[in-house]
Design a protein around this nucleic acid. Sequence first.
DNA 1: GATTAAGATGAGCTATGACTCGACTTAGCT
DNA 2: AGCTAAGTCGAGTCATAGCTCATCTTAATC
Lengths: 191, 191
Amino acid sequence: MPEHRPSGDDGPPLRADAQRNRARILNAAETVFAELGANASTEEVARRAGVAIGTVFRHFPTKNDLLAAIMKQLLARLVAEAGELNGPAGLFEFFERLVAQAAEKRSVVELLARAGMDLRLPDAVGRLEQALGGLLAQAQAGGTVRPEVALPEVMALLISVCQGALHGGWEEGLQKRTLGVIFAGLRPAAG
Amino acid sequence: MPEHRPSGDDGPPLRADAQRNRARILNAAETVFAELGANASTEEVARRAGVAIGTVFRHFPTKNDLLAAIMKQLLARLVAEAGELNGPAGLFEFFERLVAQAAEKRSVVELLARAGMDLRLPDAVGRLEQALGGLLAQAQAGGTVRPEVALPEVMALLISVCQGALHGGWEEGLQKRTLGVIFAGLRPAAG
DNA sequence: GATTAAGATGAGCTATGACTCGACTTAGCT
DNA sequence: AGCTAAGTCGAGTCATAGCTCATCTTAATC
Protein backbone atom coordinates (compact mmCIF):
# COMPACT_ATOMS: atom_id res chain seq x y z
CA MET A 1 0.00 0.00 0.00
CA PRO A 2 1.51 3.35 -1.07
CA GLU A 3 2.09 5.74 1.73
CA HIS A 4 0.20 8.96 2.26
CA ARG A 5 1.14 11.50 -0.33
CA PRO A 6 2.46 14.82 0.99
CA SER A 7 1.87 17.77 -1.32
CA GLY A 8 5.10 17.67 -3.28
CA ASP A 9 5.31 13.92 -3.91
CA ASP A 10 5.06 12.78 -7.52
CA GLY A 11 4.44 9.05 -7.37
CA PRO A 12 2.20 7.21 -9.84
CA PRO A 13 -0.76 9.35 -10.88
CA LEU A 14 -3.84 9.36 -8.68
CA ARG A 15 -6.84 7.31 -9.68
CA ALA A 16 -9.66 9.29 -11.26
CA ASP A 17 -11.94 9.13 -8.22
CA ALA A 18 -9.07 10.07 -5.95
CA GLN A 19 -8.37 13.16 -8.01
CA ARG A 20 -12.03 14.12 -7.94
CA ASN A 21 -12.24 13.68 -4.18
CA ARG A 22 -9.03 15.56 -3.55
CA ALA A 23 -10.39 18.53 -5.49
CA ARG A 24 -13.73 18.36 -3.68
CA ILE A 25 -11.98 18.29 -0.33
CA LEU A 26 -9.86 21.30 -1.16
CA ASN A 27 -12.92 23.23 -2.31
CA ALA A 28 -14.93 22.28 0.74
CA ALA A 29 -12.04 23.08 3.06
CA GLU A 30 -11.62 26.50 1.54
CA THR A 31 -15.23 27.52 2.05
CA VAL A 32 -15.53 25.87 5.45
CA PHE A 33 -12.40 27.50 6.82
CA ALA A 34 -13.43 30.78 5.24
CA GLU A 35 -16.74 30.70 7.06
CA LEU A 36 -15.88 29.07 10.35
CA GLY A 37 -12.21 29.91 10.75
CA ALA A 38 -9.24 27.63 11.00
CA ASN A 39 -10.59 25.54 13.83
CA ALA A 40 -13.61 24.29 12.01
CA SER A 41 -13.67 20.50 12.35
CA THR A 42 -12.32 18.14 9.75
CA GLU A 43 -15.66 16.34 9.88
CA GLU A 44 -17.41 19.45 8.66
CA VAL A 45 -15.05 19.59 5.72
CA ALA A 46 -15.72 15.94 4.93
CA ARG A 47 -19.47 16.49 5.17
CA ARG A 48 -19.44 19.39 2.72
CA ALA A 49 -17.09 17.59 0.39
CA GLY A 50 -19.47 14.62 0.39
CA VAL A 51 -16.79 12.15 1.40
CA ALA A 52 -16.09 10.10 4.52
CA ILE A 53 -13.71 11.41 7.08
CA GLY A 54 -11.16 8.71 6.37
CA THR A 55 -10.87 9.99 2.83
CA VAL A 56 -9.91 13.44 4.00
CA PHE A 57 -7.19 11.96 6.19
CA ARG A 58 -5.97 9.75 3.37
CA HIS A 59 -5.29 12.82 1.25
CA PHE A 60 -4.09 15.05 4.08
CA PRO A 61 -2.67 12.98 6.90
CA THR A 62 -3.08 15.74 9.45
CA LYS A 63 -5.34 18.73 9.69
CA ASN A 64 -2.29 20.94 9.46
CA ASP A 65 -1.45 19.43 6.08
CA LEU A 66 -4.89 20.39 4.89
CA LEU A 67 -4.50 23.91 6.20
CA ALA A 68 -1.08 24.15 4.61
CA ALA A 69 -2.51 23.06 1.25
CA ILE A 70 -5.24 25.69 1.40
CA MET A 71 -2.73 28.27 2.48
CA LYS A 72 -0.49 27.44 -0.45
CA GLN A 73 -3.40 28.00 -2.84
CA LEU A 74 -4.23 31.25 -1.14
CA LEU A 75 -0.70 32.59 -1.20
CA ALA A 76 -0.30 31.63 -4.83
CA ARG A 77 -3.50 33.52 -5.65
CA LEU A 78 -2.28 36.58 -3.78
CA VAL A 79 1.04 36.49 -5.59
CA ALA A 80 -0.79 36.29 -8.91
CA GLU A 81 -3.01 39.17 -7.89
CA ALA A 82 -0.01 41.25 -6.91
CA GLY A 83 1.61 40.44 -10.22
CA GLU A 84 -1.29 41.88 -12.17
CA LEU A 85 -1.17 45.17 -10.30
CA ASN A 86 1.09 47.82 -11.71
CA GLY A 87 2.07 51.45 -11.32
CA PRO A 88 2.48 53.68 -8.31
CA ALA A 89 -0.97 52.96 -6.90
CA GLY A 90 -0.62 49.19 -7.17
CA LEU A 91 0.44 48.71 -3.57
CA PHE A 92 -2.55 50.62 -2.24
CA GLU A 93 -4.86 48.72 -4.51
CA PHE A 94 -3.46 45.48 -3.15
CA PHE A 95 -4.09 46.61 0.41
CA GLU A 96 -7.67 47.39 -0.41
CA ARG A 97 -8.35 44.09 -2.11
CA LEU A 98 -6.76 42.06 0.66
CA VAL A 99 -8.71 43.84 3.35
CA ALA A 100 -11.92 43.32 1.43
CA GLN A 101 -11.21 39.61 1.24
CA ALA A 102 -10.22 39.46 4.88
CA ALA A 103 -13.51 40.94 5.96
CA GLU A 104 -15.47 38.08 4.41
CA LYS A 105 -13.05 35.21 4.81
CA ARG A 106 -11.76 34.43 8.24
CA SER A 107 -9.33 31.94 6.82
CA VAL A 108 -7.50 34.59 4.84
CA VAL A 109 -6.54 36.26 8.04
CA GLU A 110 -6.05 33.31 10.31
CA LEU A 111 -4.06 31.38 7.78
CA LEU A 112 -1.97 34.38 6.89
CA ALA A 113 -1.29 34.80 10.56
CA ARG A 114 -0.23 31.19 10.95
CA ALA A 115 1.73 31.01 7.72
CA GLY A 116 4.96 31.75 9.49
CA MET A 117 4.11 29.80 12.63
CA ASP A 118 2.56 26.30 12.76
CA LEU A 119 2.40 25.89 9.02
CA ARG A 120 5.82 25.85 7.45
CA LEU A 121 5.62 27.57 4.11
CA PRO A 122 8.70 29.75 3.90
CA ASP A 123 8.96 29.61 0.13
CA ALA A 124 5.34 30.51 -0.56
CA VAL A 125 5.51 33.38 1.89
CA GLY A 126 8.83 34.39 0.38
CA ARG A 127 7.24 34.65 -3.05
CA LEU A 128 4.51 36.88 -1.69
CA GLU A 129 7.10 39.09 -0.01
CA GLN A 130 8.95 39.31 -3.28
CA ALA A 131 5.81 40.34 -5.14
CA LEU A 132 5.02 42.95 -2.51
CA GLY A 133 8.56 44.19 -2.71
CA GLY A 134 8.01 44.81 -6.39
CA LEU A 135 4.85 46.79 -5.71
CA LEU A 136 6.59 48.79 -3.02
CA ALA A 137 9.48 49.63 -5.33
CA GLN A 138 7.10 50.81 -8.03
CA ALA A 139 5.19 52.93 -5.55
CA GLN A 140 8.37 54.51 -4.28
CA ALA A 141 9.66 55.10 -7.80
CA GLY A 142 6.38 56.82 -8.62
CA GLY A 143 6.52 58.97 -5.52
CA THR A 144 3.45 57.39 -3.96
CA VAL A 145 5.34 56.03 -0.96
CA ARG A 146 8.19 57.60 1.01
CA PRO A 147 11.56 56.09 0.10
CA GLU A 148 12.53 55.27 3.68
CA VAL A 149 9.61 52.89 4.14
CA ALA A 150 10.82 49.28 4.04
CA LEU A 151 9.15 46.00 3.18
CA PRO A 152 8.86 44.56 6.71
CA GLU A 153 6.68 47.38 7.98
CA VAL A 154 4.52 47.12 4.89
CA MET A 155 3.98 43.43 5.60
CA ALA A 156 3.33 44.18 9.24
CA LEU A 157 0.75 46.80 8.36
CA LEU A 158 -0.89 44.46 5.90
CA ILE A 159 -1.21 41.68 8.44
CA SER A 160 -2.37 44.07 11.13
CA VAL A 161 -5.10 45.61 9.07
CA CYS A 162 -6.35 42.22 7.92
CA GLN A 163 -6.48 41.04 11.50
CA GLY A 164 -8.38 44.10 12.50
CA ALA A 165 -10.79 43.64 9.64
CA LEU A 166 -12.22 40.56 11.33
CA HIS A 167 -13.93 42.56 13.99
CA GLY A 168 -17.60 42.81 13.44
CA GLY A 169 -18.42 46.48 13.49
CA TRP A 170 -16.26 47.76 10.65
CA GLU A 171 -18.81 49.12 8.27
CA GLU A 172 -17.72 50.05 4.79
CA GLY A 173 -16.83 53.64 5.61
CA LEU A 174 -14.70 52.79 8.60
CA GLN A 175 -12.59 50.41 6.60
CA LYS A 176 -11.91 53.09 4.01
CA ARG A 177 -11.02 55.70 6.60
CA THR A 178 -8.71 53.33 8.43
CA LEU A 179 -6.90 52.45 5.24
CA GLY A 180 -6.83 56.17 4.44
CA VAL A 181 -4.84 56.87 7.57
CA ILE A 182 -2.34 54.16 6.70
CA PHE A 183 -2.00 55.39 3.12
CA ALA A 184 -1.42 58.89 4.40
CA GLY A 185 1.33 57.49 6.59
CA LEU A 186 3.01 55.82 3.66
CA ARG A 187 2.79 58.79 1.32
CA PRO A 188 5.52 61.43 1.21
CA ALA A 189 4.95 64.26 3.68
CA ALA A 190 4.46 67.35 1.56
CA GLY A 191 1.78 67.71 -1.13
CA MET B 1 -27.10 26.95 49.27
CA PRO B 2 -26.39 30.38 47.75
CA GLU B 3 -26.18 30.36 43.99
CA HIS B 4 -23.06 31.07 42.00
CA ARG B 5 -22.14 34.71 42.25
CA PRO B 6 -21.87 36.54 38.94
CA SER B 7 -19.53 39.53 38.95
CA GLY B 8 -21.97 42.25 39.91
CA ASP B 9 -23.88 40.43 42.68
CA ASP B 10 -23.54 41.85 46.19
CA GLY B 11 -24.93 39.18 48.46
CA PRO B 12 -23.54 38.41 51.93
CA PRO B 13 -19.76 38.92 52.05
CA LEU B 14 -17.53 36.04 50.96
CA ARG B 15 -15.86 33.92 53.55
CA ALA B 16 -12.17 34.70 54.12
CA ASP B 17 -10.88 31.63 52.31
CA ALA B 18 -13.24 32.26 49.44
CA GLN B 19 -11.91 35.79 49.01
CA ARG B 20 -8.34 34.51 49.07
CA ASN B 21 -9.06 31.84 46.50
CA ARG B 22 -10.94 34.21 44.25
CA ALA B 23 -7.96 36.55 44.19
CA ARG B 24 -5.55 33.68 43.55
CA ILE B 25 -7.67 32.48 40.68
CA LEU B 26 -7.81 35.89 39.08
CA ASN B 27 -4.04 36.27 39.38
CA ALA B 28 -3.37 32.83 37.99
CA ALA B 29 -5.83 33.34 35.17
CA GLU B 30 -4.22 36.59 34.18
CA THR B 31 -0.74 35.12 33.85
CA VAL B 32 -1.93 31.88 32.29
CA PHE B 33 -4.01 33.59 29.65
CA ALA B 34 -1.21 36.07 29.07
CA GLU B 35 1.23 33.28 28.34
CA LEU B 36 -0.93 30.69 26.65
CA GLY B 37 -3.67 32.77 25.12
CA ALA B 38 -7.38 32.68 25.73
CA ASN B 39 -7.80 28.99 25.07
CA ALA B 40 -5.53 27.85 27.82
CA SER B 41 -7.42 25.26 29.87
CA THR B 42 -9.26 26.05 33.05
CA GLU B 43 -7.37 23.21 34.68
CA GLU B 44 -4.11 25.01 34.08
CA VAL B 45 -5.53 28.06 35.81
CA ALA B 46 -6.64 25.95 38.75
CA ARG B 47 -3.24 24.29 38.97
CA ARG B 48 -1.37 27.58 39.09
CA ALA B 49 -3.83 29.06 41.53
CA GLY B 50 -3.29 26.07 43.78
CA VAL B 51 -6.99 25.24 44.00
CA ALA B 52 -9.15 22.42 42.71
CA ILE B 53 -10.97 22.84 39.46
CA GLY B 54 -14.34 22.86 41.13
CA THR B 55 -13.31 25.94 43.05
CA VAL B 56 -12.63 27.85 39.87
CA PHE B 57 -16.07 26.96 38.58
CA ARG B 58 -17.65 27.89 41.86
CA HIS B 59 -16.35 31.44 41.50
CA PHE B 60 -16.77 31.68 37.73
CA PRO B 61 -19.54 29.37 36.54
CA THR B 62 -18.26 29.33 32.97
CA LYS B 63 -14.90 29.91 31.40
CA ASN B 64 -16.33 32.92 29.66
CA ASP B 65 -17.18 34.47 33.00
CA LEU B 66 -13.56 34.09 34.01
CA LEU B 67 -12.39 35.67 30.78
CA ALA B 68 -14.86 38.49 31.22
CA ALA B 69 -13.60 39.15 34.74
CA ILE B 70 -9.99 39.34 33.55
CA MET B 71 -11.04 41.52 30.67
CA LYS B 72 -12.80 43.91 32.99
CA GLN B 73 -9.63 44.29 35.05
CA LEU B 74 -7.61 44.84 31.90
CA LEU B 75 -9.94 47.45 30.47
CA ALA B 76 -10.06 49.29 33.77
CA ARG B 77 -6.26 49.37 33.84
CA LEU B 78 -6.14 50.71 30.31
CA VAL B 79 -8.65 53.41 31.13
CA ALA B 80 -6.57 54.41 34.13
CA GLU B 81 -3.45 54.48 32.01
CA ALA B 82 -5.17 56.63 29.40
CA GLY B 83 -6.33 58.98 32.14
CA GLU B 84 -2.79 59.64 33.29
CA LEU B 85 -1.62 60.57 29.82
CA ASN B 86 -1.97 64.21 28.85
CA GLY B 87 -1.07 66.65 26.15
CA PRO B 88 -0.88 66.40 22.40
CA ALA B 89 1.43 63.38 22.41
CA GLY B 90 -0.66 61.39 24.86
CA LEU B 91 -2.48 59.42 22.19
CA PHE B 92 0.76 58.29 20.55
CA GLU B 93 2.20 57.38 23.91
CA PHE B 94 -0.85 55.25 24.59
CA PHE B 95 -0.42 53.43 21.28
CA GLU B 96 3.17 52.65 22.10
CA ARG B 97 2.40 51.35 25.55
CA LEU B 98 -0.45 49.18 24.41
CA VAL B 99 1.57 47.64 21.62
CA ALA B 100 4.42 46.94 24.00
CA GLN B 101 2.00 45.12 26.30
CA ALA B 102 0.42 43.27 23.42
CA ALA B 103 3.75 41.89 22.32
CA GLU B 104 4.30 40.12 25.61
CA LYS B 105 0.77 39.27 26.63
CA ARG B 106 -1.35 37.32 24.24
CA SER B 107 -4.38 37.87 26.38
CA VAL B 108 -4.28 41.61 25.94
CA VAL B 109 -4.85 41.16 22.27
CA GLU B 110 -7.15 38.19 22.23
CA LEU B 111 -9.34 39.53 24.97
CA LEU B 112 -9.45 42.96 23.44
CA ALA B 113 -10.51 41.29 20.23
CA ARG B 114 -13.27 39.37 21.96
CA ALA B 115 -14.42 42.22 24.15
CA GLY B 116 -17.11 43.18 21.71
CA MET B 117 -17.96 39.65 20.67
CA ASP B 118 -18.42 36.64 22.99
CA LEU B 119 -17.79 38.62 26.13
CA ARG B 120 -20.41 41.25 26.73
CA LEU B 121 -18.76 44.24 28.28
CA PRO B 122 -20.27 47.24 26.55
CA ASP B 123 -19.83 49.59 29.49
CA ALA B 124 -16.18 48.76 30.13
CA VAL B 125 -15.39 49.12 26.46
CA GLY B 126 -17.41 52.31 26.39
CA ARG B 127 -15.30 53.80 29.14
CA LEU B 128 -12.14 52.99 27.24
CA GLU B 129 -13.56 54.59 24.13
CA GLN B 130 -14.41 57.66 26.14
CA ALA B 131 -10.88 57.88 27.52
CA LEU B 132 -9.42 57.47 24.06
CA GLY B 133 -11.78 60.11 22.78
CA GLY B 134 -10.30 62.49 25.32
CA LEU B 135 -6.77 61.74 24.19
CA LEU B 136 -7.77 62.16 20.57
CA ALA B 137 -9.38 65.51 21.28
CA GLN B 138 -6.28 66.74 23.07
CA ALA B 139 -4.06 65.58 20.23
CA GLN B 140 -6.24 67.35 17.70
CA ALA B 141 -6.37 70.50 19.80
CA GLY B 142 -2.58 70.43 19.99
CA GLY B 143 -2.21 69.93 16.25
CA THR B 144 -0.70 66.48 16.59
CA VAL B 145 -3.54 64.72 14.79
CA ARG B 146 -5.55 65.87 11.76
CA PRO B 147 -8.98 67.18 12.74
CA GLU B 148 -10.87 64.96 10.31
CA VAL B 149 -9.65 61.76 11.99
CA ALA B 150 -12.45 60.21 14.06
CA LEU B 151 -12.50 57.90 17.05
CA PRO B 152 -13.62 54.70 15.29
CA GLU B 153 -10.62 54.56 12.99
CA VAL B 154 -8.33 55.26 15.92
CA MET B 155 -9.84 52.29 17.74
CA ALA B 156 -9.58 50.19 14.61
CA LEU B 157 -5.93 51.07 14.15
CA LEU B 158 -5.23 50.33 17.78
CA ILE B 159 -6.81 46.90 17.60
CA SER B 160 -5.16 46.13 14.30
CA VAL B 161 -1.69 47.01 15.45
CA CYS B 162 -2.08 45.02 18.63
CA GLN B 163 -3.23 42.03 16.67
CA GLY B 164 -0.30 42.33 14.36
CA ALA B 165 2.08 42.65 17.28
CA LEU B 166 1.45 39.01 18.18
CA HIS B 167 3.35 37.73 15.21
CA GLY B 168 6.72 36.45 16.18
CA GLY B 169 9.23 38.28 14.01
CA TRP B 170 8.57 41.86 15.01
CA GLU B 171 11.85 42.89 16.47
CA GLU B 172 12.06 46.12 18.36
CA GLY B 173 12.91 48.29 15.37
CA LEU B 174 10.11 46.98 13.18
CA GLN B 175 7.51 47.77 15.80
CA LYS B 176 8.73 51.34 16.02
CA ARG B 177 8.78 51.80 12.25
CA THR B 178 5.31 50.36 11.88
CA LEU B 179 3.94 52.67 14.52
CA GLY B 180 5.87 55.47 12.83
CA VAL B 181 3.92 54.97 9.63
CA ILE B 182 0.63 55.09 11.49
CA PHE B 183 1.60 58.18 13.42
CA ALA B 184 2.62 59.85 10.17
CA GLY B 185 -0.82 58.99 8.84
CA LEU B 186 -2.51 60.60 11.80
CA ARG B 187 -0.44 63.77 11.81
CA PRO B 188 -1.43 66.79 9.77
CA ALA B 189 -0.03 66.74 6.22
CA ALA B 190 2.28 69.74 6.13
CA GLY B 191 5.19 70.33 8.55
C1' DG C 1 -16.47 23.59 71.65
C1' DA C 2 -20.65 22.64 69.03
C1' DT C 3 -23.27 23.76 65.08
C1' DT C 4 -23.92 24.69 60.40
C1' DA C 5 -23.93 26.48 56.10
C1' DA C 6 -20.38 28.25 52.87
C1' DG C 7 -16.86 26.61 50.56
C1' DA C 8 -13.31 23.20 48.66
C1' DT C 9 -12.35 18.95 46.53
C1' DG C 10 -11.50 15.84 42.55
C1' DA C 11 -13.32 11.73 40.33
C1' DG C 12 -16.15 11.52 36.67
C1' DC C 13 -19.64 12.85 33.04
C1' DT C 14 -20.23 14.57 28.39
C1' DA C 15 -18.99 16.57 24.17
C1' DT C 16 -15.91 17.32 20.69
C1' DG C 17 -12.34 16.69 17.54
C1' DA C 18 -8.12 14.61 15.57
C1' DC C 19 -6.93 10.48 13.87
C1' DT C 20 -6.94 4.89 12.88
C1' DC C 21 -7.97 0.61 10.78
C1' DG C 22 -10.18 -3.49 9.05
C1' DA C 23 -13.88 -4.35 5.81
C1' DC C 24 -15.64 -3.07 1.53
C1' DT C 25 -15.71 -0.89 -3.33
C1' DT C 26 -14.01 0.34 -7.66
C1' DA C 27 -10.76 2.16 -11.28
C1' DG C 28 -7.48 0.48 -14.30
C1' DC C 29 -5.65 -3.13 -16.74
C1' DT C 30 -5.29 -7.47 -19.42
C1' DA D 1 -15.09 -10.68 -17.21
C1' DG D 2 -11.74 -11.16 -13.63
C1' DC D 3 -7.99 -9.57 -10.92
C1' DT D 4 -5.81 -6.54 -7.75
C1' DA D 5 -4.08 -2.70 -5.65
C1' DA D 6 -5.68 1.95 -4.89
C1' DG D 7 -9.12 4.15 -2.77
C1' DT D 8 -13.28 4.74 0.26
C1' DC D 9 -15.92 4.09 4.23
C1' DG D 10 -17.30 4.97 9.02
C1' DA D 11 -17.44 2.97 13.54
C1' DG D 12 -14.25 3.28 17.00
C1' DT D 13 -10.02 5.01 19.81
C1' DC D 14 -7.70 8.42 22.33
C1' DA D 15 -7.05 12.80 24.19
C1' DT D 16 -8.70 17.06 25.81
C1' DA D 17 -11.59 20.44 27.87
C1' DG D 18 -15.73 22.32 29.93
C1' DC D 19 -18.47 21.40 33.57
C1' DT D 20 -21.06 18.69 37.70
C1' DC D 21 -21.91 16.77 42.17
C1' DA D 22 -21.57 13.88 46.24
C1' DT D 23 -18.53 14.18 49.86
C1' DC D 24 -15.46 16.27 52.96
C1' DT D 25 -13.46 20.66 55.33
C1' DT D 26 -13.58 24.88 57.64
C1' DA D 27 -14.84 29.82 58.70
C1' DA D 28 -18.08 32.14 61.21
C1' DT D 29 -21.32 32.44 64.93
C1' DC D 30 -23.20 31.50 69.51
